[in-house]
Design a protein around this nucleic acid. Structure first.
Lengths: 232, 232
DNA sequence: CTTCATATTTAGGGCCACCTAATTATTGGT
DNA sequence: ACCAATAATTAGGTGGCCCTAAATATGAAG
């Protein structure tokens, strides 16, 4: 009945909605024009124009000079794209031999072209996996997502054991580096040192050499505390 | 070095090149504007405009008021799309449970979004099949296609045994009908009757009831003569 | 409370790909 | 050889989405 439901989304609108969703925002801090422009690599005035159209179509509320917040329709549309992207990443990795560092770009293009039916078939073939290869949760067809409460690796205490649970899929370099030092989703490790002043965190993957990780990288890694290796 | 090689193709140009390729044409009878417009479902003036751009980009030669012929670059680009489409049809059918009547639309959208790498991976997983589910030959990555010399079912003699080799993938209705009467790519049958004045052709699939087929349908089915059932 | 840096929006333009209406070229019949 | 029917092109316009430059709103600091 609403405008949003009847509107057929273009590639561009899909990208905007996904970007706005991923930037989060709440009643206090709506998502700002500049952040969207930066994420999508377009100029700010282009964003202004698109926000007007998306607001008219009912996908978001726009408070001029302050920012935007997705409506329920907008969130639904965004989560549909997130589901597509993550199912595609799973499928391409499991069935077609892609690495976790090369899968993002392919999924980014395909997510605009696949049907919901195809996505569901892919998910079905894989046994409806709950997470993508980077540990990100896959929304259900109905638009539900698990809220994950991970601790940034940078915030773990020295001596603590933990497991890597989630990594951003955006930067292939970073992903290749992580693989090269033995870090994957599910890898257990112990924090063995932490320098102050946002210095590096040093960890030890079970049975490996100490490995220092820069603070910026360490802040981008979502972890969960775990029992020490070998314990019950 | 040429314009064509440096140009990044848009969705639309890909569709035009594919349509022009599929319409064939030769030195005598170049592909005409109206035929392209009809195939793509756009107005003739839209085609005129696009032909000018494609000719400038080096994909085709345009003789005003007569028609167009693809250049080598144009043919290469078109065959790349044909390969994509047919590999996708194979993959979706073999690995994701699509039927031969539902696979066309999905492939039509995906062919613009997949990378060459993904297509080659799909083909590899399937063991590089030579034909798609409708019997159409799959071009190589280098742009070679097998030329098939099929006989329209409508042209077979009464009494003759033959095998269905190729069907158009465009019309789902037609494909569902063929399945329903037991006709698939590879099915052997015998022509048992033929009415004059473009009347129906009646065939018998091994061990089945006589089945009349309308002339228009029978003309669209590519067949190959075969030894009688049971013979060496 | 004014002022200045920063963020955002408006103004004005371009390209792509489509449309309809009007014009022009080609061709087959007389 | 001409004329009507048909096919193709040009003319002129639209919407989507992008851009730069200019104008305007916000908010923090003096």
């Amino acid at each position: 009945m609403n405008a949003a439901a009847s509107r057929v989304l273009t590639r561009s609108t899909e990208d905007y909605l996904k970007a706005i969703y991923s930037l989060g925002g709440d009643a206090e801090l709506p998502v700002q024009t500049a952040a969207i422009a930066d994420t999508l690599g377009v100029a700010a005035p282009s964003v202004s124009g698109m926000l007007r159209r998306l607001a008219e179509a009912g996908f978001l509320e726009h408070i001029p000079y302050r920012g935007v917040r997705l409506t329920d329709d907008g969130r639904r549309a965004a989560l549909r794209m997130v589901r597509r992207h993550r199912v595609l990443e799973c499928y391409l990795t499991s069935e077609l031999g892609y690495d976790w560092d090369s899968v993002h770009d392919e999924a980014e293009r395909l997510e605009h072209a696949v049907s919901d039916d195809l996505i569901d078939r892919m998910a079905h073939v894989l046994g409806n996996p709950p997470y993508d290869p980077h540990g990100a949760p896959i929304p259900t067809p109905g638009g539900e997502v698990e809220e994950l409460k991970h601790v940034p690796l940078a915030d773990l205490e020295v001596g603590q054991w933990a497991e890597l649970r989630m990594v951003s899929d955006k930067d292939p370099e970073r992903l290749r580096f992580l693989k090269s030092v033995g870090l994957d989703v599910g890898t257990r490790f112990q924090v063995v040192a932490r320098q102050p002043f946002n210095g590096p965190v040093t960890i030890c993957v079970a049975g490996g050499q100490p490995q220092p990780l820069g603070n910026e990288l360490a802040r981008s890694l979502g972890c969960a505390a775990r029992e020490p290796e070998g314990a019950a």
